[in-house]
Design a protein around this nucleic acid. Sequence first.
DNA 1: TGACGTTTGAAACAATCGTTTTAGTTATTA
DNA 2: TAATAACTAAAACGATTGTTTCAAACGTCA
Lengths: 217, 217
Amino acid sequence: MDEIRRDFENEDVQNRLLDAAEKLFCEKGFARTSVRELTTEAGCNLAAINYYFGGKEKLYTEMFRRQFQMMIQGHLDTIDQVMCEGDVSLEKLLKVIIEPPIRRAVANETKGQILKLLVREVMDQKIDPEYVVKDMKEKFFDRLGSVFMQLVPGLPEERIALIVMSFDGVILHPFLFMEFYQKTMPDLTIDELVNHIVRFVAAAIRGYASPAEKEAG
Amino acid sequence: MDEIRRDFENEDVQNRLLDAAEKLFCEKGFARTSVRELTTEAGCNLAAINYYFGGKEKLYTEMFRRQFQMMIQGHLDTIDQVMCEGDVSLEKLLKVIIEPPIRRAVANETKGQILKLLVREVMDQKIDPEYVVKDMKEKFFDRLGSVFMQLVPGLPEERIALIVMSFDGVILHPFLFMEFYQKTMPDLTIDELVNHIVRFVAAAIRGYASPAEKEAG
DNA sequence: TGACGTTTGAAACAATCGTTTTAGTTATTA
DNA sequence: TAATAACTAAAACGATTGTTTCAAACGTCA
C-alpha cells in the first residue's frame, strides 16, 4: 500500500516524469515548479508522482542523481578519450571539455541547463551535500587536477585543487549568465567564446607553472 | 487607503523589514521565504510588508535594488582608490577587489551573501533583467575592463569584455561553493585563497596580453 | 471468463501561502 | 481636548500547494 513501485516494467510514465522534472526544475527551480505543472508536462495524472516516486522531493532527488552522474561520467569519458590520443595538449583538453556543453546551452537544450541545476542545488541543498561534494571532488575534480599536472609540468601540487576550482568558475560563468553574454555581446560567436575560455584558462594555468615576477610595481 | 506609505519618518519597521529580507532572501531564496518568517524576523506584524512595501515582491525588489547599488558603488570606490595610489599594479587591484568580500563571506556575514542573491536573481529573474544588466555592465564591468587595459598594455580590446566575465567567474566561485571549499580543503586559509585567485587571474590576463605559442602539440 | 494485482482518474484533503479586512491603538495637529 | 491621520494587531480571505483517497479501468494469469 505504502510501498513505492519500482518495477521498471512500464517506465513510460516514470521516464516522462523524469524528463518533465529535468526540464521544469532546471528552468524554474524546485519551489516554483508545482506537481500539477510536472504531471501536465509529462502528460499523466496528478497522483502519478506520489505513486511512482513517493513525492515531489523524491522525484527531484532521483532526477538530480541521474543527471549529476551522467554529467560526471560524460566529463570523465571525454578526458579519457583526449588523453589517449597522441597530440594531447592543455588547450585541446580544455576545448573538448567546455565546447559541447556550451553549444548545448546556447542551443537552449535541456542538457545545457544542468549546471544551473547544480548551482541551484548547492544553494538550496535539498540533497545531502556530502553526496554531491564527494562525487564531484573524488570523481571529477581530482581527475582533472591530475591531468592538469600531467599536461603542465611545474604546477604546484598544493594548489591544484584551487586551480581546478577557478577553472570551474570560468566555465560555469557563461552558463549562469548566458543572457548577459548575449545582451552585452550580441555578435559573440560560440567559437569566440570557447577560444576565449581556452586561452584564458590555459594562460592562467601555464602562468601558475612558470611564476612570473610582478611587473609595473 | 491603497497608497503605499513612503514617509521615511519612522523607518524602524521598514529598515527592519529590509534587513530581514536581506538575511532571509539571501539564505533561502525568495520562494522558500514566507512573509510570516520575514515579519517574525523583523519583529513586526504580518500586515506590515503589504502596508509599507505593497507586497512581498516589492519588498524583495527594494532590498535587491539597494544591495545591488551598494555593491557596485563599493567596487567602484575601491577601484578609484587603488588607481589613485602610486604603486598600482594588476595584482594589487585584484587583491583589494576580492579580499574584503571573501573575508565577509567566510565570516558568514550577511553582506557576504549578496553575490548568492545576485546569482539567484539572474536565475529567477524577478526584476527586469535590463536594469541589472545595464548597471552591472555600464557601471562596473566597463570600468573594470578599462582599468585592466590601463594596467596591462597589449590586451586585445575586443576581448576585454570576455576577460572581465571570466574574472567574474573566478571570484564568484568561492562565494557559491564556499562549503565545498571548506569541506574539500579544510586547512585552506583566506590568505591562500585570495593569493591563489590573484595569481590565477593575473596569470590569465598577462598571458592574454603576451600570447604564448602552444606547447606540447 | 473470473479474479487479482497494477495503474489511472478525479475529487477531496489539510496545510500554507500572500493578501485583505476590520478594529483598535498611537501620534499629530488645530 | 477633539479630530484626523498614521500605524499596529489579529483574524479571516481566497488561492494554491503537496498529498491522499477511492473507485474505475486495465492487464495478466488461472
